[in-house]
Simulated assay, not measured.
Amino acid sequence: MARTTITGGQLSLDETFSKLAKVSIYDWAETDRHLDYLRTYCILIDYDAAKCHGKQAWANISISKALLQLYRAQGQPPLDEIGILERIEFYLQIKEATHSLGHGALESSVLSQTVAWASHNSDYTQVGSEQRLLDLLRFFVRIHNYNNKNSPETQVVQPWKSGSDFRTLHTEMEEYTVHFPSTPSLDENDNSQDDIEYTITEAMCSLVCHCCDIALNLRFLPIPEPNNGQGIGSLSTCVEFPGAPPLFILERRSRCEASAEAICRIAQDVVQGGGFFHYTALLGYCSVHAIFVLLNQLHRQPKHQQLGKVVGSLKFAFTLLAAVRRFYAPAASWEYNW
C-alpha cells in the first residue's frame, strides 16, 4: 500500500484507512495488481455507502465495473481467479441494484435488466442463489418505479382489473414463489463456510421476495382512524383504498401481514447465522417495510385480540433497524421518507 501523509484535522481510524486505500489504487499502470484494486474498491463501496457518501459509492461501482472489464480484456485470467472475478461481478451488480432502490435517477440502469423467471425459463430452478437475489433486487426496483409513477388518480386501468400494471407485477411475483415456495432454515450442523453462505443467501432471497410483496401491496392497506383520540384498540373505522373490492383488499392485507412476520423470522435467522454484516443495508431496508405493516396491523386490532406476536415482531424489527443504523448511516432517515 502506498504511503501518504494525513494533514489537517484529526482523522478517525476508518477515515485514515479510506484515504490510504484510495491512494493505493490510483496507479492503474500496475496491471498485475488489478485484482487487488477490485477487492479494495469493493471495500470502499461498502464504506462510502455506510457513511452516506452515496455519490462516491455509485462512482466506485462504475469504476469497478470498468476495471473488471479491463482486467478481463487483457486475456484469460488464471483459473484460480475466475471464481473470484465472478463473485466480484455479482457483488457489483447487487450493490448497483441496492443503491438504486428509491432513487429514480439511478433506477434506469437496473430497469433495463430482464427478470429471468418472468421469461418463462423452465430451467430457472437451476439458477444459483446469488443470481436469484440479483433478479429479486431488480424486480424490487421495478416495483419502486411502479409505485413512484402510478397513483390511484393517474392509473388508466384499476389495479384489481386484469391487464393492469399491478396485475403484471403480481403475476411475476407469483411465478417466482411457485419456483421457490419455502425458505431454507439455517442448520446448526452446517460447519462448512460455503454451506453457511449458501443458506444465508437463500434466506436473503426469501427476505427480499417478501419485501417485494409488501412494497407491491402496501398502498392497499386500510388506514385506521382514531376514535376520539383513544389510541390503539379504540379504532372504529378505516379508510379503504377507493373503489377496491373487499376481497381484493383482504388479500392485499393478508399478504402484507404474512410477509411482515416472515421478514422478522428470516432476518432473525440471518443475523444468528452471521449474515448481518454481509447484508446490513438490505436487512434494515426490509425491516422498515415490516415495521410499517406491523404498526398498521397493531393499530387496527381490537384490544381484546392477542397482539403478543405482532408486538414481539415489532420489537425485533426495531432492534434490528437500530443495529443497522449503527453501521449504515442512511438507515437513520428511512422511515421519514415514506
Rank of each mutant, 00 (worst) to 15 (best):
A290M: 02
G312F: 05
F276A: 07
L298Q: 08
D269V: 12
T280V: 04
W334K: 14
F327R: 15
V271A: 09
Q297P: 09
A331I: 06
L298Y: 12
V288I: 15
C286V: 00
F318K: 00
R326V: 06
G274I: 13
H289G: 05
N296P: 02
F277S: 06
G273T: 05
K303A: 13
A260K: 03
A262M: 15
Q306Y: 15
L321Q: 13
V311Y: 13
K315Q: 09
Y336I: 07
L314R: 01
N296W: 04
L320H: 01
L321N: 12
S287A: 15
H299S: 14
R325H: 05
Q306T: 14
K309D: 10
L320W: 05
N296G: 09
S333P: 00
A267C: 07
W334Y: 15
L294S: 00
L298W: 15
F327C: 12
N296D: 09
A260W: 01
R265M: 09
G274C: 11
K315D: 07
V324W: 08
G275M: 12
G284C: 02
G273S: 03
F316I: 04
L307C: 13
R325K: 11
A332N: 11
V293D: 02
A331S: 13
G275D: 05
G273R: 03
H299E: 13
A332W: 06
I291Q: 10
S313K: 09
I291G: 05
A260M: 08
K309H: 14
L283V: 03
P330T: 00
V271S: 04
A323W: 14
A317K: 05
F277Q: 11
G274E: 10
R300D: 06
P302Q: 13
H304R: 12
S287V: 00
F318R: 00
F276Q: 06
Y328P: 02
Y279K: 03
D269R: 15
K303C: 10
Q301L: 15
G308I: 05
I263K: 02
V288S: 08
K315E: 10
K309G: 06
G274A: 12
I291S: 07
S313C: 15
F292W: 13
A290G: 03
A260F: 04
V310H: 07
G284Q: 05
C286E: 01
I263R: 04
H299K: 10
L314D: 01
Y328I: 07
R326Y: 02
F292E: 08
A323R: 14
H278T: 13
Y336A: 11
F327A: 13
Y328D: 04
V324C: 09
R326C: 14
A281E: 09
